[in-house]
Design a protein around this nucleic acid. Sequence first.
DNA 1: AGCAATTCAATTGTGTGCAATATAAACTTT
DNA 2: AAAGTTTATATTGCACACAATTGAATTGCT
Lengths: 166, 166
Amino acid sequence: MTKTSVQPEHMENLGGGALPRLDQQLCFALYSAVNRVTRLYRPVLSALGLTYPQYLAMLALWEHSPRTVGALGEALDLDSGTVTPLLKRLEKQNLVRRRRDPSDERRVIVELTEAGQALKARAAEVPASLACQIALPTSELIDLGERVRRFKRCLPADDAGAYAER
Amino acid sequence: MTKTSVQPEHMENLGGGALPRLDQQLCFALYSAVNRVTRLYRPVLSALGLTYPQYLAMLALWEHSPRTVGALGEALDLDSGTVTPLLKRLEKQNLVRRRRDPSDERRVIVELTEAGQALKARAAEVPASLACQIALPTSELIDLGERVRRFKRCLPADDAGAYAER
DNA sequence: AGCAATTCAATTGTGTGCAATATAAACTTT
DNA sequence: AAAGTTTATATTGCACACAATTGAATTGCT
């Protein structure tokens, strides 16, 4: 009780000074849900030669293709240390091409190759083969997505925002 | 417009053959939420010398300490290829000890050291310092946790369960 | 008892994620 | 315009996550 902090008397779950049980933690629920989802995607995506993050990158590129590395990283909420090697692996598979932006040589433009565009058709079946493994109505999945996005928006993002909104 | 593609007229969301937008995908929402949460934990946990998965492992061990590697992996929903090196790093920090189970030499028993037990007190502040960075009422966080766990339970787990419940 | 099948943990190899740093190209300031 | 600053990407090093494999111990079967 020598705390300067914000600790009220008896908290159920968060912030009480006593550690919450693992299986009550929102953050662990998210963490293990993502691991499971990734495992679920793996066999489906390996038929396309993609990992799960690579699939996400391709989804972003299928939405609009000539795009800078930075813009892609922002869409995926990943930094260059993650995106650059990922793109190199996609390039090695001939799904994307990378070139410097002539008008600003700092930037690198990523674009789909023919093969990358063509893969979109085959990927169209991915959502259905995932959805059919999940024993929940679509409406509930959509609702959960909304809630997770709302949650995410309440997290301090790219350390801009934490102080910048003043 | 020279496309062979499969683009149907106008699909809403899942399973229709058209790819959903990245920012509508539940799975991407989970994925990026977890990345952000991990980034949020990082500075708080690094004060304790822990990473986020290490913190989860310690939470599990603080709940009950002498525990096999397998039991810990099951609690965390991780396999031995992830847990073993993680435990070695915790051991190097003298937070846990590992020894073979004398009654079954295949098993390895993990237990907290004195230092590992002691760390629990310092970790007690972690949930509060996280919660205060999240601009949502606790009730909503708890509710979201429930929903994510329900979602997770509907995923085929460790490929046992998919067929075993007959 | 003897041997195959199973179980448990560790190891290997690939692919993320991210902090910290590096490098080069633009922008700013004077 | 030279120098310092900022911006965009790449690189390095560390820690996951997991498939596939290995090795050792136990269980099951006959």
